[in-house]
Design a protein around this nucleic acid. Structure first.
Length: 567
RNA sequence: GAUUCGUUAGCUCAGCUGGUAGAGCACAUCCCUUUUAAGGAUGGGGUCCUGGGUUCGAACCCCAGACGAAUCACCA
């Protein structure tokens, strides 16, 4: 890759710094006594401090200069005075190193005194500075005026996601989003630990990808010579642990699903799943409410959350409604007594698309998805799903066509999903067999049969309630972001294409002099074959033109030389 | 997967009907001892995403492709 002018200048500065005997990448630790934000919020006039961070603004004004240093907590202004930094005859630390050889983005260690400038800004009067690391690429540095207008914002999503490190340096609000994410997770973990549930880890590489309806990623284990899948859920493993006698287990799990990517879906995502013995889904609703309310208060200090245009309250209790009642409410139709043909007619009447493969459950789910789901802006538990949709869920205590399941809807989206877990091994086996039939019909999301899991249930699992909550989605809600990429540090992207430079041997074998290869490559002949495709005269002219334009310090090529490459 | 839009300097973006590629910031040189997105002056910097085509002439029009974004469909 050809370097830009600014990059060349920085490399030149680097060389000069080394020539001055300064190590631009020193090894020893730099002791930091304070952080920018603390110094700004607790002003102590004349306090001696050492701080470290990146140079992010520099304004040179003769013998005095102002600069901003950005550390992990914020920014503080630095005041450089030539005769302070260089009290002796030798003024080069200021005149050369600071003014000329440093660049925005470099890491500096600063020793000095806190004071207020005439304009009243808390600053550090610099006594000495240490180069801690030289940056060779310029940072895009947006500026913010008093009204909060941002100039030259670094906001191209692709660049921001691919170079998240730059995004984080330059866009403070991005950093804040991720700090909040971390707080959300630790608040949830604290809540669960206080209840004395055990945080566990279960396999990510699974030979049977169970626990959800989704297409898995597949990989291969060489030593065993078997296929392995990246988990789509950890449900079946956590329930095995309940069989094993734990009262409550939970895991923050990265799951992997080989499906579409868009602003709410990433191939890998995080779910927290929890299973608690001797509980049912009614208890789990209370528990979920309490957990979410607690997290909101911990992280935001309030249960009122603005998501896009909507003001949402996570104050307990949340509304609860069964799926059938919800459909009744939104369509005026009571589907509870309908058989499959009646339901199909109803779907058509409601303009809900159906196809031959759909059973009763799927159709009910479609109607709900089409007519009801998006209307639940405030947190709402939708309960009692059709049995076909939920092969791991216990049948409803009052109605065998339904299951004891709820989903928590927030802002028209699913946030959590929970069951009274199916613990009847014979029923479980039959439900798995139903899934096998679906798979034979062509449903590529149908579940695999997990014999060992059935065996575990045969040893006896206590009544258990389990719940899974999408962590990324929760973070989106609580940070008011509309895309999942904004709450993942490194969202999945297509691999970046890299310019790997010229294939030296290919050019050499044509007889191209080594010192010309790079220039020929930069002039646009990126492969040796493309060089000799056209006419020698054209190549000759183009290269000499390139030489002249870029002031390349090589003798002009002779036509005979170029012609020789073509033979 | 479908549709729409986009890709021009390190960053954010203009670029009229097809006629010499622009601005602000950043960068460089010089001047300046307390500045507040921002002192002054001067200057350098471009594969206009790629490849074809039309044309005397293409950043602009046509075709194909790459990459991205938004909306929609499925999934969390």
């Amino acid at each position: 890759m050809a370097l830009s002018e600014q990059e060349l200048i920085r490399r030149e500065s680097l060389k000069k710094i080394i020539e001055k005997g300064i190590n631009p990448y020193p090894a020893p630790q730099f002791h930091v006594s304070d952080y920018s934000a603390d110094l700004v919020s607790n002003f102590e006039d004349g306090k001696d401090v050492t701080i470290a961070g990146r140079l992010v603004r520099r304004k040179i004004q003769g013998k005095a200069s102002f600069a901003d240093l950005q550390d992990s907590k914020g920014k503080i202004q630095l005041y450089f005075n030539r005769d302070e930094i260089c009290p002796d005859e030798d003024k080069s630390m200021y005149n050369d190193v600071f003014k000329k050889l440093l660049d925005l983005g470099d890491f500096l260690g600063i020793k000095g005194k806190v004071f207020k400038t005439m304009v009243g800004e808390i600053s550090i009067q610099v006594e000495s500075f240490t180069v801690l690391s030289k940056a060779l690429k310029p940072l895009p540095l947006p500026k913010i005026d008093k009204e909060g207008n941002v100039y030259d914002a670094f906001n191209d999503p692709e660049l921001r996601y691919r170079r998240r490190y730059v995004d984080l340096v330059v866009n403070d609000h991005v950093k804040q989003t991720f700090i909040k994410r971390s707080k959300i997770i630790s608040s949830m973990r604290n809540f669960l630990n206080q209840k004395e549930y055990l945080e566990v880890e279960t396999p990510i590489l699974q030979s049977i990808p169970g626990g959800a309806a989704a297409r898995p990623f597949i990989t291969h284990h060489n030593a065993l010579d078997v296929p392995l899948y990246l988990r789509i859920a950890n449900e079946l493993y956590l329930k095995r642990l309940i069989v094993g006698g734990f009262e409550g287990v939970y895991e923050f799990a990265k799951d992997f699903r080989n499906e579409g990517m868009d602003r709410t879906h990433n191939p890998e995502f995080t779910q927290m799943e929890i299973y608690v013995a001797y509980k049912d889904y009614l208890w789990m609703m209370d528990f979920t409410e309490e957990m979410l309310e607690t997290i909101c208060l911990d992280v935001l200090g309030t249960t009122d959350v603005k998501i896009g245009e909507n003001n949402i309250s996570f104050k307990r209790p949340f509304k609860r409604i069964s799926m059938i009642d919800s459909i009744k409410e939104h369509t005026g139709i009571d589907i509870s007594k309908m058989d499959e043909t009646k339901l199909k007619e109803t779907c058509k009447k409601l303009n809900v698309e159906v196809d031959e493969t759909m059973g009763k459950g799927k159709m009910i789910d479609e109607i709900f998805g089409e007519k009801c789901e998006a209307t639940y802006i405030q947190p709402t538990f939708i309960t009692d799903y059709p049995v076909e949709m939920s092969p791991l869920c216990k049948k409803h205590r009052d109605n065998p066509e339904l299951t004891e399941r709820f989903e928590l809807m927030v802002n028209g989206k699913e946030l959590a999903n929970a069951y009274s877990e199916l613990n009847d091994p014979i029923d479980q086996k039959e439900r798995f067999e139903e899934q096998v039939k679906l798979a034979e019909k062509g449903d590529d999301e149908a579940m695999f049969i997990d014999q060992d899991f059935v065996r575990a249930l045969e040893y006896g699992m206590p009544p258990t309630s389990g719940m899974g909550i999408g962590i990324d989605r929760l973070c989106m809600f609580l940070t008011n972001q509309s895309s999942i990429q904004e709450v993942l540090f490194f969202p999945q992207m297509k691999p970046e294409k890299w310019d790997t430079g010229p294939d030296l041997n290919a050019y050499k074998s044509l007889g191209v002099p080594e010192e010309w290869i790079e220039h020929i490559y930069n002039a646009g002949y990126v492969t040796a074959t493309s060089l000799v495709e056209g006419k020698p005269t054209a190549v000759h002219q183009k290269l000499n033109g390139y030489r002249k334009k870029n002031k390349i310090d090589l003798a002009p090529l002779q036509l005979a030389e170029v012609e020789a490459w073509f033979s």
